[in-house]
Nucleic acid binder design. Structure first.
Length: 800
DNA sequence: TTTGACTGCCC
DNA sequence: ATTCTGC
DNA sequence: GCAGAATGGGCAGTCAAA
């Protein structure tokens, strides 16, 4: 690892952590929207949790990092203006663990300031002066008086946006940025939106950047004098590639400034990078990255880099960008300036709300800026008429409707009391949206709207045999599930063994069955505004089951709690994850006035209570849990930069007296728990080890940043057990060269009542693994049996 | 030619 | 996927 | 209740290095 040394840094004015930064909560939506009162102070909470303090780093004789006394975050509670020069030129190590980590070597010690572009770092201009809404976009920043939109505009706005946390303020800043672009360089709106949402194309076009840390490191080594080793050490300190690159460039005298980057230029370079394929392209990509980096000024470097690793981290992704776009278009396009003046606050408020909903709805059905943006900018269409143009159509995926997690069946009945509902099996496979256009073209999309038509040639050829003669175009919602020779459903892991590209129909190794559950479009007509009952019935008429290849999901239409409970149990016995409970009919509004109305319509992109997801692993009575021992951890990044995350957990093998790595866990911990953990595993605790104990069994790929003395037992819950190529638990017991791990691990609680030798054993894990494989007609066992894993206080979970 | 790091995408 | 947190 | 962030296991595909 890094060099063994001490370094001392300076203590700088520090933005405080917390939420005193913005008083956005008291600001009305309308004011925020209009940009009135946008008196947001600079130097607020940085989303990445970074601060500018720095203390010594130390290692023990083995070269392992040892946390020194932790910096109390609270001592920086007050906050001050943060002069641009300061934060542009000083590395910002990660709070709390500054002292844990090797501070990367001499390069990072603040030396003479060589920053060449400090002027571009603005804190002041971040917030526009209070301007009447008609004029605030008249004034462009001094560096952009004409011509195409400079990339610097985006970079500075991104920096400003990451300084604050309030939704309204974030939206407002982005809206202003987009308004400037619409007004002064509308041709840049599309690339600006892509860059703001960290995409370069609609998901379904399958265009990938193919850039990650590797190429980044290559590029950084060529523009700075950091070694790749130092760069990695810097990453360990900062946990953000944008910050790493900024630090790297400061380490060298990069004085030549090429032409400033433009939004369109950056975007087209990214597209060029994405188009590169084949031998030697890694270097070519790195070369383009390097060229852009060299041209960066000020904040540009940080955000360009974050864009390259697809992790912008400005606190705004799809939805917020979409809202900002709707606001910007409304003000710049749909409402003429003179009309705007004459609108009352309430009128404007209503227009804003409508604009947001309109655009969200459009995007849910046509998730493609290439289509939406030209329509928005078209004087004849705009927000007013776009809804008619953005209807779902075969060939363009719609964002799928999602189910809400339900932790208990009683919750289901409370939620759906008085309504008509049914329950579907929730199969453990891959969601598939199958489209057929009028011309007979078939496309299959994944849950996140990637095109996966190539992966399923067998489904393509299946289609003619599953439709009735009158069925032409359709959009079908389904789950693709692996099956064995007998036609019984196989595990998700089996399905994931399937090839994804260049699949020839005759060479399909993993056979699948399509389980259909919804129909959103049929014969030229959208069905999404119809009730689920209507859609389901239409689906049953338009399609016919084909044995072992196509079926409708198993469904129960009953309001009887006992029957639904039995249906859930039965679904699990048949290899499913659980059930989805769905409203069949939209209740009449007059019935239960107090409750929010639940819709039976297909609500793209929404996770509503109209679909309730009941999975085995949410239910304490049915889920397996494990008692595991933390034996190591990594340093978190971003929001968790000051804590250990994830944690490496092991089971206890009493025969070999070894702790065997079983899974990593990062979910289920509260911030308070992270804090207390840092104390429990502080250097003074004596629980930090210089290296792994000889009785730890872990694979090389799972070496954590710090090692723990085994001293606690944690209850961990997960979904199912998987055969693992990396984890060592029960190695060789179900597969010669593989261990067992856990899908969706999450922390439940500390088991103070257990010692580390009471932890779950490999044999217990194997037992659970074997049990979960039992499927098919024979029932597994009584559902609520509790045995291993030690759920000692599980209360019984009677339904109603 | 084989191995393995990296990347993206399923859950 | 799951989970927590701030708004 | 939404939106965002951080990150789990594990696979196939891609390209570079051995």
């Amino acid at each position: 690892m890094g060099p063994k040394r001490k370094s001392t840094g300076s203590l700088n004015a520090t933005p405080k952590k917390g939420k005193k930064d913005v008083d956005s909560g008291t600001q009305s939506t309308l004011d925020a929207f209009l940009g009135i009162k946008s008196l947001v102070s600079p130097g607020g909470n940085k989303r990445d949790g970074s601060v500018t303090s720095q203390t010594s780093a130390e290692r023990d004789e083995n070269g392992e990092k040892i946390p020194a006394a932790v910096l109390a975050g609270d001592q920086f509670e007050q906050w001050e203006e943060w002069p641009p020069e300061t934060w542009a030129t000083n590395a910002k190590p990660r709070k709390g663990f500054d002292s844990v980590r090797d501070v990367a070597g001499p390069e990072l010690v603040p030396g003479p300031v060589v920053e060449t572009s400090a002027v571009s770092i603005s804190v002041q201009p971040v917030d526009e002066p209070v301007l009447p809404i008609n004029e605030c976009v008249e004034t462009r920043p001094p560096y952009w008086q004409s011509g195409p939109t400079p990339y610097r505009l985006l970079a500075e706005r991104f920096a400003a946006v990451s300084e604050v946390t309030g939704r309204q303020v974030i939206t407002e800043k982005l809206t202003h940025m987009l308004r400037l672009i619409i007004r002064h360089a509308p041709q840049d709106l599309l690339p600006a939106l892509y860059l703001s949402s960290n995409n370069i194309a609609p998901a379904y076009e399958g265009i990938e950047l193919g850039i990650g840390p590797q190429i980044l490191v290559k590029a950084i080594t060529s523009i700075s004098d950091m070694s790749s080793k130092t760069i990695k050490a810097t990453w360990d300190v900062k946990g953000d590639w944008g910050d790493v690159v900024v630090a790297a460039r400061m380490s060298t005298q990069m004085l030549v400034q090429p032409k400033p980057l433009t939004v369109a230029g950056v975007f087209s370079t990214l597209q060029k990078i994405a188009a590169m394929k084949g031998q030697g392209t890694v270097n070519q990509k790195a070369d383009l990255v390097k060229k852009m980096m060299i041209a960066c000024q000020g904040e540009e470097l940080r955000f360009l880099t974050r864009t390259l690793v697809s992790h912008l981290r400005i606190g705004a992704v799809r939805t917020t960008i979409l809202i900002a776009l709707s606001h910007a278009v409304l003000l710049e396009h749909d409402i003429p300036a003179d009309v705007l003046k004459s609108l009352s606050k309430d009128q404007l408020k209503a227009r804003v709300k409508t604009a947001e909903q309109t655009l969200k709805e459009c995007y849910a059905q046509v998730p493609n800026y290439d289509i939406i943006v030209p329509l928005l900018l078209n004087p004849d269409i705009g927000l007013a008429r776009i809804i008619a143009e953005c209807k779902c159509m075969p060939g363009v995926p719609i964002r799928p409707m999602l189910g809400k997690i339900t932790r208990d069946l009683t919750e289901v009945f409370e939620n759906l009391e008085g309504m008509n509902f049914c329950a579907d099996y929730k199969y453990d496979g891959q969601r598939a949206q199958i489209h057929r256009s009028d011309s007979g073209e078939i496309t299959i999309f994944s849950r996140h709207l990637e095109t996966m038509t190539d992966k399923y040639p067998d489904i393509i050829t299946l289609i003619p045999s599953i439709i009735t003669p009158s069925t032409t175009s359709f959009i079908l919602d389904a789950e693709v599930v692996a099956i064995d020779e007998a036609g019984a459903v196989a595990s998700f892991q089996t399905l994931s063994n399937r090839a994804r590209k260049n699949v020839a129909e005759g060479e399909v190794k993993v056979k699948v069955c399509v389980y259909a559950f919804d129909l959103m479009f049929l014969n030229g007509v959208s069905l999404i505004t119809e009730s689920f009952r209507t859609r389901r019935d239409a689906m049953r008429k338009a399609f016919v089951p084909v044995e072992k290849r196509f079926a409708f999901v198993e469904q129960l239409e009953s309001k009887e709690p006992d029957e639904i409970q039995a249906f859930l149990t039965q679904s699990l016995q048949n290899g499913c994850e659980g059930i989805m409970v769905k409203i069949l009919d939209t209740p009449s509004t007059t019935s239960t006035s107090t409750r929010r109305s639940l819709l039976a319509t297909y609500e793209p992109d929404k996770r509503t209570e109209s679909w309730l997801k009941v999975k085995k692993d949410y239910l304490s009575t049915l889920a397996d849990s494990f008692d595991l021992v933390p034996i190591g951890a990594w340093y978190g990044t971003g929001r968790k930069a000051t804590w250990y995350s994830p944690i490496l957990l092991a089971c206890w093998n009493p025969e070999t007296e070894c702790f065997e790595s079983f899974c990593k866990c990062m979910s289920g911990f509260s911030d308070a728990f992270y804090k207390s953990m840092k104390d429990r595993y502080s250097p003074e605790s004596g629980k930090l080890l210089p290296g792994p104990k000889s009785y730890f069994t872990i694979s090389d790929s799972q070496r954590p940043d710090v090692w723990f003395l085994p001293s606690e037992v944690w209850e961990i819950r997960g979904a199912d057990l998987t055969v693992s190529p990396v984890h060592q638990a029960a190695m060789g017991k179900v597969d010669e060269a593989k261990g067992i791990s856990l899908r969706f691990p999450r922390f439940i609680k500390v088991r103070d009542d257990r010692s580390v030798e009471d932890a779950t054993t490999p044999d217990e894990i194997v037992h659970m693994f074997t049990r979960q494989r039992v499927r098919g007609p024979e029932p597994v066992k009584e559902a609520a049996e509790e045995d291993m894993g030690g759920d000692n206080e599980v209360e019984d979970d009677e339904i109603i």
